[in-house]
Structures are given as C-alpha cells and as structure tokens.
Nucleic acid binder design. Structure first.
Length: 668
DNA sequence: GTAGGGTTAG
C-alpha cells in the first residue's frame, strides 16, 4: 500500500480490506478500482470534515444519536463507517439504509460501492431487503453493470429484485434486456405486480419490431390479471401505444382509464406531439384543462413541440400566456421547446427573448437558438453566438457543431465552416456522418464540386446516401450533369426508395434539355414504386391553419384565390417578374407550364393570405418541401408590390421576403 | 426495497 497516503485515507483502505476479505472481488470492480474509489471517497465526500487524523481526534463520539445526526450533514455521511470499524458504533439496518439512500439521492456511485463493500462485512451480508436497496441504488446511480453483477450474485431474489433490474434496463434505454428478464422471472414462479408491468410497458414502447409482439402479449397478460386499472400501468400502456405511433389505440386505452392523472394526459399529448399532430395536441390540452387537470412542465413542453412542428405561433402564444399565468418558472426543459416553437414558427426575435429569460441556459438552449439563427439565414449571427458560447466556456456537443456548420453552409461561409469542422477535434467530438454531409453541402453550394467529391472519397467513414445526396443537390444547383448523374447512382444504390434524388436527377437532365434521360429517370422512379410526396403549403390565419396543395380546385375560396393571383401576377410582371418554367415537368408545353406554375401550393397560400389578412401584416407560410425557384422569385416581387413581409418556412430553413429580396440571398 | 410522461440536428 502506498506510503504517501494520509492516515484518514488509510482508514478507507481498511474498509476495503475488510470487504475484500468476504469476497467483494466478485463485484465488477477490480481491486485497484475499489482501492481508488475508497481513497477518493474518503477525501472528497465529507467536505465538512477537516483533513486527516485531527477530525477523528476531535470527534470521538460516544453518543449514537449524535452520530446519527451527523448523517444529516451534506455529503453521503460515509465517514460514520469508520466509526463502525472502530467499534464505537453498531451498524444497524437503519444506518445502512440511510447511507444507501444518501448515495442513491446524490447519485454517488463510488461511495455506493464502498457502502456495499461494508455491508458485505456485516451480518447483513445475506439480507434480501438490504440487497434490493443496494441494487436499486446502483440502478439510480446509472450503473447497470454493478446492478447486474449484484443481481447475478444474489442467491435469493424476490419480485422486488427482479423489478428493480427490469426498471433499470427500461430506464436506461436497454429495453431488450428488460423484456428478456420477464419470462425468466415467470419461470422462477414469480408473478409481476403493477411496478413490474409499468416498467415492462415502458421497455416494450421502446421496441417496435415483430408487430410489437412483446408489448401486446404483456398487454394481454395485464388484462387477464386486471392490472390495467392501476393508473401507473394504464398510463404506461397509453405511452407504449403512443410510442409505436398507434394513437387510436393509445386514445382508446386512455378513455378506458378509470383513474387518470396529469401523467396520463401527458403521455397522450406527447404521443401526438411526436407525430407532429399539433392541432390534436392542442385540442387535448383544452380538454385536459376543462376536465380540471393542471398542465405540468411535461405538458407544456410537449404542446410547444407540437406547435413548433405545426408552425402555429398564434396557438403557441396562447399556451405560452397560459403558462405564464399559471406561474410556472421558465426552466430550460420547457423554455427550450418554447424558444424552438417561436423560432420554427417564424419569430426569431421572440425566440431570443425566451432564451434571455430562461432561469438557466443549458446546451440544448444554445443549440436551439443557434439552429433558429441558422434556419433564418442569419449565418453571421450564428457564428458570433457560437463564438460567444465558446468564450464563456460552455462545452459544445455534436449538435452544436452541426448547427454552426449548417449555418456556414447556408450562408456561404466557406472558410469558417471548414475551420469549425477542424475545431471539433479540439473539443473531443468525433464528426458524425451528418457533419460530413454538411461539409459536402458547404463545398458543393460554393461550387467546389470536385473538392466536395474528393472530400467524400477521403472520408474515414463509409459515405451514406445522405452524403451523396448533398453532392447531387449541389450538382443540380451548379448544373453539373455528369457528376450529378454519378452521385445520383450512388444514392440509388444506397437508398433506392427516396424520391428526392430521382426528382433532382430528372430535373438536372430536364434543365439541360436532355429530356429522354429525364424521362428515363422518371420511369425508373415509377417502376421502383418510388412516390414523390405531394407538395403542400399551410398558412395560419386567426388561429386556424389552412392547407393548400398544388392545383387545388376544391377550395371554397377557389375563385377569389385564382383571381387574386392573376391580379398579383400582373402587378409583379410589370416590375420585372418572369416566370421560370424550368421548375415544371418538361412534358407540358410552355403555356401550360406557366399555368402549372401559377398553382404551386405556396402561391395559392400566399394569394389566400393576401385575401384574408390586413394590409401590411406579416404573412407566414409553411411548406413540406423546398420552395421552388420560380415561387421564390415571385414571392420576392410580391413582398415589394404589396409592402408585406412574407416568411416562408420550408423543410430546410426560413425565407424572409422583404422589399423585393430574401434573407437567404437566393442561396438555399 | 421495485413503477408511468418532456427538449435541440438531420
């Protein structure tokens, strides 16, 4: 043993030796690890204790009550074990439970292992309840390995033992491990209770293979034994079906619950939020309120997420106001979704306000804000904020870098983008495939197609369809047919069912006049059963979201909309708008192309908004695919002739049209 | 002694 260790540290080592004597080496820790942890624990755990032997000299405690009170100090109170070792205190069940609970609450794994070691030296070494508590402690400290080792070593296990481990696996994203334990448990003659089942449903919700066999079987078991009336079990069922995306079943189970609470509502609302069903989530919030339940942070967080994906700012604002009135603090978990909602529904200013008002910003707050700036085309702002983040010493993560790289790509900041890509190493972040995609995009957009291709060839990881897809997109932008065709072939090989690359390649050929090649790609696409997603646009007016599809002739205001577009079209042609028909399929004639162009969904949405909003107000449109070049050009002119700010959100980013130009500087 | 719900990118 090291001679450099102080006397107080050697006491911890004594503890370790004791433990080793009764077979602690069976634990997952090596002797060296345990020695280190014991030493460290004794040094760092009890800040209130002065260094070394002095403390023991001045604290010879005879009074056991006084000693127990020392457990109320901060820290895990581990030092009392030294007094046990000295014989001045008897370690009883209560003492061990207090120590174990303290380690659990504070999540202190090293200390937890020491207490465990000590217990093995005591006459509780075969005590089942104590060992269940230890197992739970390891789970709560996040060490499934320690928990599993203990579980395997325990000669006697009861339902609590099995349930604690099952819940551990389901909490720490190891659903399969949780699920396989269940039949093993049944084989040993143990029957699950509501605790076991709710953990199992949580696990089953995280896997969705084989027609969700596990979850459905468990559900049947649960009905058979009548556990479904328990609110925990019922809620975990609602959640399980919602995670599979089966919202109808989720709703049915929810409706059948005799007892509901906030958590049940939250599970259902979160399900709709994950499916981007904003309207549904909002309706449920209204219902929840009418039925007298108080929304929690979880509720608000899900509803804001739903509003963000729907881009419904007005509704989101209403919920925000409701949250303020309820007196809830703006903690990061909710605030991040709120700021994301503002950013995604078009108001970067409001997003910034939320960011500034957060009780404390975490890395997700920063990432959301950076994403917001990037999507709004504020490349310089993103870079500046990113630099600020580094300056104040916040550790960026892989998403942070992805945000800043995307911003550089969208804003054409070539040098900065490459610099930040290299900078990732200094922060010990290994670039993921998405970072490589962004760099290909960055180089490609800047027209450096050969460099982009070279970059792909030299990648240390295998390029995916997304990587080649980025090159293909750049080839479309810069009209490079040969490289585009090559990149498209790579994409087809890697991901034959995506319609995007087929459409892109077909368009590359079409715009170069190679109509037969374009037709061949379209045919290939058809033959493979690849379907193009129909284009849609949405516009929110007075709390209602209106949807438009291209050539929509079923809309009740169809005549007015078309009339409005004709008027607008005339006005913008007067100031220089020329329809760019290269964005329309090649097999229609010129006149027909112009007509088809006129009825792109974003134009219909725009005309509708002009008809139904007050002059001068901002118009916000959302699109499910990228805005086409002709619409982009037309909307720029409309913003000028109508004196309107028009904000279009497509799948990639925002376009802020104002006074004849767009924030993306025609670069998207 | 064991249980259910929430965030950022692409």
């Amino acid at each position: 043993m090291s001679r450099h260790i102080s006397k107080s540290k050697s006491k911890a080592l004594y503890l370790y030796k004791n433990a080793a004597a009764v077979g602690i080496q069976k634990l997952s820790l090596s002797a060296a690890q345990l020695r280190t942890s014991a030493t460290r624990a004794s040094c760092t755990d009890s800040e209130e204790i002065s260094e070394g032997e002095d403390w023991y000299a001045s604290h010879i405690i005879q009074d056991k009550d006084l000693l127990r009170k020392s457990l109320h100090n901060s820290g895990t109170g581990l030092h009392v074990l030294d007094l046990v070792n000295r014989g001045s205190l008897e370690a009883d069940r209560t003492l061990y439970n207090k120590l174990l609970n303290r380690c659990t609450q504070m999540g202190r794994l090293q200390q937890a292992r020491i207490v465990h070691a000590h217990i093995l030296t005591s006459h509780f070494k075969d005590d089942l309840p104590i060992h269940n508590t230890i197992l739970n402690m390891y789970v709560k400290c996040g060490s499934l390995e320690d928990a599993r080792n203990l579980f395997d070593q325990m000669p006697c296990k009861d339902l609590v033992t099995w349930t604690a481990l099952i819940s551990g696996y389901s909490q720490y994203d190891r659903p399969q491990d949780a699920l396989v334990l269940f039949p093993q448990m049944l084989l040993r003659g143990l029957e699950p209770n509501q605790f076991t089942l709710s953990s199992l449903f949580k696990a089953a919700g995280a896997v969705s293979d084989d027609n969700n066999k596990h979850g459905r079987q468990l559900h049947a078991y649960c009905l058979k034994y009548g556990f479904d009336t328990n609110v925990y079990v019922g809620t975990s069922l609602v959640d399980m079906y919602a995670r599979w995306g089966h919202m109808d079943e989720s709703q049915l189970i929810f409706d059948s619950l005799e007892t509901k609470n906030e958590v049940s509502w939250n599970a259902l609302i979160a399900g709709h939020a994950r499916k981007a069903q904003g309207e549904h989530a909002l309706r449920l919030l209204g219902k929840m309120l009418r039925e007298g339940f108080k929304p929690t942070h979880f509720t608000y967080s899900s509803v804001f997420t739903a509003c963000a994906s729907a881009g419904s700012m007005e509704q989101g604002k209403w919920v925000h106001a409701h949250m303020i009135k309820s007196g809830a603090k703006l903690v990061a978990f909710v605030g991040n979704t709120l700021l994301d909602m503002y950013a995604k529904s078009g108001s970067i200013e409001d997003a910034r306000k939320v960011f500034d008002r957060l009780v404390r910003q975490d890395i997700v707050s920063w990432n959301s804000m950076l994403t917001g700036y990037a999507q709004h085309g504020l490349g310089q702002e993103t870079v500046q904020r990113f630099e600020e983040l580094l300056r104040i010493g916040i550790q960026p993560n892989d998403i942070t870098f992805l945000c800043v790289l995307t911003a550089c790509s969208h804003a054409g900041l070539l040098d900065e983008g490459q610099y930040y890509f290299d900078l990732m190493k200094s922060y010990n972040i290994e670039p993921q495939i998405s970072h490589y995609v962004t760099i290909v995009d960055l180089l490609g957009r800047a027209g450096l197609l050969d460099r982009a291709e070279k970059f792909i060839r030299e990648m240390p990881i295998e390029p995916t369809a997304a990587v080649w897809g980025a090159l293909l997109g750049a080839c479309r932008m810069h009209k490079n047919i040969d490289l585009g065709a090559y990149a498209a072939e790579r994409v087809f090989e890697l991901d034959p069912h995506d319609s995007g690359p087929h459409v892109l390649l077909s368009n590359i050929y079409a715009s170069a006049g190679r109509l037969s090649d374009a037709a061949r790609v379209r045919k290939l696409m058809k033959d493979c059963g690849v379907k193009k997603e129909p284009a849609c646009s949405w516009v929110e007016i007075e709390n209602a979201v209106h949807m438009f599809v291209a050539n929509d002739d079923a809309h009740p205001q169809r005549v007015e909309i078309l009339h409005m577009w004709e008027t607008i079209s005339g006005k913008i042609k007067e100031i220089g708008y020329v329809p760019d028909t290269s964005h329309v399929l090649f097999f229609v004639d010129q006149q027909e192309r112009e007509v088809k162009l006129q009825y792109h969904s974003e134009k219909l949405a725009l005309a509708f908004a002009l008809l139904n909003t007050t002059p001068g107000s901002t118009i916000r449109i959302k699109k499910n695919i990228r805005v086409c070049g002709d619409c982009h050009s037309a909307i720029k002119y409309v913003s000028k002739v109508e004196g309107r700010e028009i904000i279009v959100r497509d799948t990639n980013r925002f376009h802020h049209f104002r006074d004849g130009s767009c924030s993306c500087r025609d670069y998207w």
